[in-house]
Design a protein around this nucleic acid. Structure first.
Length: 516
RNA sequence: GCUCGUGUGGUGUAGCACGGCCCAUCAUUACGGGUUUUCAUCCCGUCGACCCGGGUUCGAAUCCCGGCACGAGCACCA
């Protein structure tokens, strides 16, 4: 019955188009058309769930143990973009609560703020330093002990691990609030040393997910030998919150409405939700992204980069071989390209691996219209012109946009071309003349383009200087010498190197190669 | 081991909550062509995918079940 009707409907659709079917339906059963139109192609980022325009608070929370890296740019871009989309607020929060394993780098606080502004195109609406907020974390920890949903645990890590695996409660779990408060004071006054005790959140030791069982919220750090690098904090505190606790409390205090983070933090969400239940708070909406690898890059960790910079393997955080924001910016990748790149990847929870070519193509779109053309002759070979030709040439700086002219002086008749082109012998010097080369003489056979011989870039010797093209590779940096066109581009100008690619002027004779 | 998550062309991504104009979108890469006095830009075209196996249904990328693969968490790191 149904199949018959469907077959018939499909037949009508095929013969007369879908509108015919729609018309029939409208006449006979209009309610069937109520069904929502299928979602069409989506532009940009998906809608934020439960988001009210003007009432959205987001945060980006890096550890300032180094400047921002490529991956951080995702967090900044996505959170920042949503803040813009919803007229919301973006908080930049420094999660600087580890003074031992991931010690903050004092310069990073300012650098990260500068980089954030550069990337976002606006300044975060608020900056919060976790290390300034210690009294809040302590008072909530104390409340947790007073209200009996936290306890001071004196198990060693290994001991507790056994309890966690066997789903049994540890002996400290049933201490009274008074006992816990007493132990808490011993943590704070220095009676206990690092490792002697931690504060745990009481969840349930029989929870299916082992990661959630009575998770640790605060621990002791020896801030005498490892003071916090901010002098105003220094050795003031012994008891420091762990990320899950600190972040949970701070999100509550700041009124964060949406958390967008990596999916490696999914269990953090679950832990924090349990804590929020204890406090009677409502947890923010949470979204996740998956892991991103870049084909061309291996694994870089902030701490490893830091070591390699200190040992001299890299010149600094902006060494062009490094996957940091400053290195990318240094190589001429624009903030807009970086943002577009991350927005295109969107918010999927898939673990992906992307080629840098994708980022470069975004960059070209942003940059090509304004990139002056410049000639760089690798493996330069000098030849002498023979025949009739003008004294100088006026060539536009950009072929499609008016960026002014460059002038090639030809009075001495000496020009440089690449060795590789020299060997082709029959050439057209771009914007100039057809030549035939025998030994080191280039005979001009025509000023007008006369055939389809190869067109090559070249320089008049009078307008050329000894130059360097710097090519960062994975591990090394390659220096290609050659002749570079006379120019007065300021340092940092992004140029298109004719027939070679794009790069950035380091000084008037050095170009840092960016990408093809 | 336990727990959680993810599988759409070479690489990303849309579509999946509510099955049907989906023989599957867009971008990128590669290749080919056009414009261009750059191997650039721009334009056009071609190749190319629903993890596997069952099930439900007239109809499954979309729903259900079972595999498989990959990733992450189980830190006194963030």
């Amino acid at each position: 019955m149904i199949s018959k009707a469907v077959v018939e409907a499909n037949k009508i659709a095929n013969q007369e188009g879908l509108d015919a079917v729609r018309a029939i339906l409208e006449a006979e059963a209009p309610h069937l058309l109520e069904k929502r139109e299928k979602q069409k192609k989506r532009e940009g980022l998906p809608d934020l769930p439960n988001a009210e325009k003007g009432n959205v608070v987001l945060r980006f929370a890096p550890n300032p143990n180094g400047p921002l890296s490529f991956g951080h740019a995702r967090g900044l871009t996505i959170n920042g973009e949503y803040a813009k989309l919803y007229d919301g607020k973006l908080i930049l929060r420094f999660d600087d609560t580890d003074t031992v394993v991931k010690k903050p780098l004092i310069e990073a606080y300012q650098q990260i703020q500068d980089e954030a502004k550069w990337l976002l195109g606006f300044e975060p609406h608020k900056v919060v330093l976790a290390s300034d907020r210690m009294d809040h974390y302590h008072s909530y920890a104390q409340k947790m002990l007073e209200d009996g949903f936290g306890y001071v645990c004196q198990c060693t890590g290994d001991e507790f691990k056994e309890f966690r695996v066997s789903k049994t409660e540890c002996p400290h779990r049933n201490q009274t609030p008074e006992e816990n408060l007493e132990l808490w004071n011993k943590m704070r006054d220095g009676t206990f040393k690092p490792g002697d005790a931690v504060v745990r959140v009481k969840t349930d030791m029989s929870l299916k997910n082992p990661a959630l069982r009575d998770w640790p919220a605060l621990r002791i750090q020896d801030t005498q030998t490892n003071p916090h690098p901010r002098i105003e904090v220094g050795s003031t505190w012994r008891v420091w919150p762990l990320l899950d606790f600190q972040s949970a409390i701070e999100d509550y205090l700041q009124g964060v409405t949406h958390i967008i983070r990596g999916k490696d933090l999914m269990d953090s969400t679950r832990k924090q939700k349990l804590l929020y239940e204890h406090f009677g708070w409502t947890y923010p909406e949470t979204l996740y992204w998956g892991r991103v690898k870049v084909h061309e890059w291996g694994g870089f960790s902030t701490s490893q980069m830091r070591k390699d910079i200190e040992s001299g393997k890299y010149d600094g955080w902006d060494d062009p071989r490094l996957p940091t924001i400053s290195a990318l910016a240094n190589r001429g990748i624009t903030a807009e390209a970086l943002r577009n790149f991350w927005i295109e990847l969107g918010l999927t929870q898939k673990d992906i691996s992307v080629p840098l070519a994708t980022l470069y193509s975004h960059n070209i779109k942003v940059v090509d219209d304004d990139a002056p053309r410049i000639s760089f002759v690798r493996n330069s070979h000098e030849i002498k012109l023979e025949g009739e030709y003008p004294n100088e040439l006026v060539i536009p700086i950009h072929p499609n946009h008016d960026l002014g002219d460059r002038i090639f002086k030809l009075d001495d008749g000496l020009v440089c071309i690449e060795k590789e082109d020299y060997e082709k012998q029959i050439l057209r010097l771009k914007d100039f003349a057809d030549v035939e080369i025998t030994s080191d003489l280039a005979k001009i056979t025509s000023i007008e383009k006369s055939d389809s011989r190869p067109i090559v870039h070249w320089l008049s010797a009078r307008n050329a200087n000894q130059g360097l093209l710097v090519l960062p590779n994975e591990d090394s940096i390659q220096f290609i010498s050659g002749m570079i066109e006379d120019n007065d581009y300021p340092e940092g100008t992004f140029v298109q190197i004719e027939r070679i690619g794009y790069g950035k002027m380091v000084d008037s004779t050095t170009i840092l190669f960016s990408h093809k």
